[in-house]
Design a protein around this nucleic acid. Structure first.
Lengths: 277, 277
DNA sequence: TATACTAATGACTAATCGGTCAATTGTCAA
DNA sequence: TTGACAATTGACCGATTAGTCATTAGTATA
């Protein structure tokens, strides 16, 4: 599916420059050097394209953040690692980040909102995990305000950087934000986010990670994977989902096989969560 | 110009629900109960409409914020007054705030960006004024990071509130943000925003307030004003712009005459700045 | 070379867009 | 009541949109 990738690349360029609605399928196909018909061989509709883009990148970004946070052994560095990974991801996928920033407040598509909420809730969990690890009970009251503020920091600094296309000194930005976050965590006492609001924020809880969900995801991705080892690993992982008494060692090994393919990051993230690895 | 107001009202509703691009002129005229031709009697184009909306509301909001900040005598309350006025304004004009949040990241119109920058720079000045008053030299290094963080707080909490249409306890939110801001101002030591970035941020400096600019603005607004006293006051203020040795007392009195008309807030703000009142 | 199959094309449709303008309606002074 | 003028209408325009499909080009097998 090289064609699909080509379309996604060029479309992302255009979306980040002009926005989704302002970009026509014609423009996309022209930049790809293909015909209009060819576009609709790869994607059923223009909407499906943007949803695919969001999935493709958000899976990577979200899994990236989660992984580096969970694998960080040094508590001192937890916040640093989180911010650093986040901005490095945004920096790496800056065209996507730009598009995402443009479209995230748009209401034009119900499915887009729910997708946004889905990944957002995963990121929320990563942040809450960090806060829990670092401060625990100490910030029981202000926890959700901290969550909001951290996301506010990320959003406003990202927007600044993406707006002017500045070269970003991630280390410096991260250090600055770590200090700010720590200050708020350790000294702020007046919460705003009340129990009611928390419930509303949390409402779009991401569905329980089910065997069917993972299996469907593998099914969907498996044909796009070119490396035969990775493909077989995915197949076995999928089959094992429906067996009992599967070897955790084998599972871990299989996960190791696919860990370098960015397309598999999300799946392995979900499987790790599923088996509590 | 009652028709113009009707169109702006209904269009704002639609824009805040669906976004600007997704709303057609047809939809607007249908909701107004007028014909398509009638729309184009009031506005030269759809673009002119959104620019008018932004001017109409941003003038009020920006002037509101500036006025309450500058007229706050108690230094202790400065930050509180700023946040409170800001959120009260957003709350009062929530449909506009919603639309603005949707469209602010859109690139589709050069003029829209420059308008955004124009009002943004005014708000920046209000915030920097507060920071200067409260902390002065003490935050020389971190001043612009504070500016960014304050705007980040406002943005993320507004988005939260507007997204879920929650009833907003402004006082509570404001107290929470005042504490956070004070913490950052008093204790943060690691700046990120460097001199280079400041220059880029400041670049779209709003033009010097000129006599011609104010006169043109009055000219443009004066026919929409229905109250004859307000209309005459504006006329005299405009004429006085081109005279030397005008009485400051008279100017102040005239400003007093128009202070209750929201349409005049921006003009009186500029005139006050012009005469250094 | 002939056949069978897939990949790719671009002219086409139906709908909608922002914007125009000749025709109609409403209003008020003479 | 008439006539002059302003306000309002909605059919219409050209451009553009997302999406379709009969046709063609390319490729692999027999």
């Amino acid at each position: 599916m090289v064609k699909k990738q080509l379309i996604m690349d060029k479309a992302l360029e255009l979306f980040s420059e002009q926005g989704f609605e302002a970009t026509s399928v014609q423009q996309i196909t022209e930049r790809c050097g293909i015909s209009k018909g060819a576009f609709y061989l790869s994607f059923k509709s223009k909407d499906e394209l943007i949803l695919a883009l969001i999935d493709y990148f958000m899976m990577q970004i979200t899994a990236d953040i989660d992984q580096s946070v969970r694998s960080c052994s040094n508590e001192e560095e937890l916040l640093y690692v989180f911010y650093f990974t986040t901005f490095r991801s945004f920096s790496k996928h800056s065209a996507f980040a730009k598009m995402f920033l443009k479209e995230q407040t748009q209401t034009f598509n119900e499915e887009l909102i729910s997708k946004h909420d889905y990944y957002d809730s995963h990121i929320n969990e990563s942040i809450l995990y960090i806060l829990d690890q670092l401060y625990g009970e100490q910030i029981e009251e202000t926890k959700y305000d901290l969550l909001i503020c951290i996301k506010g920091f990320i959003q406003i600094y990202s927007a600044l950087y993406l707006r002017f296309n500045l070269p970003l000194d991630i280390d410096s930005l991260t250090k600055s934000l770590v200090e700010k976050t720590a200050l708020l965590a350790e000294h702020s006492t007046i919460p705003f986010i009340s129990g009611d609001i928390i419930r509303i924020i949390k409402e779009p809880i991401h569905e329980q990670v089910t065997t069917e969900h993972i299996a469907a995801l593998i099914e969907q991705k498996i044909d796009d994977i070119e490396n035969p080892i990775e493909q077989e690993s995915l197949q076995i992982l999928k089959d094992n989902l429906f067996k009992t008494n599967t070897s955790l060692a084998i599972t871990k090994g299989l996960l190791e096989n696919i860990k370098n393919n960015p397309q598999c990051k999300w799946i392995s993230y979900l499987i790790r969560e599923y088996y509590q690895l």
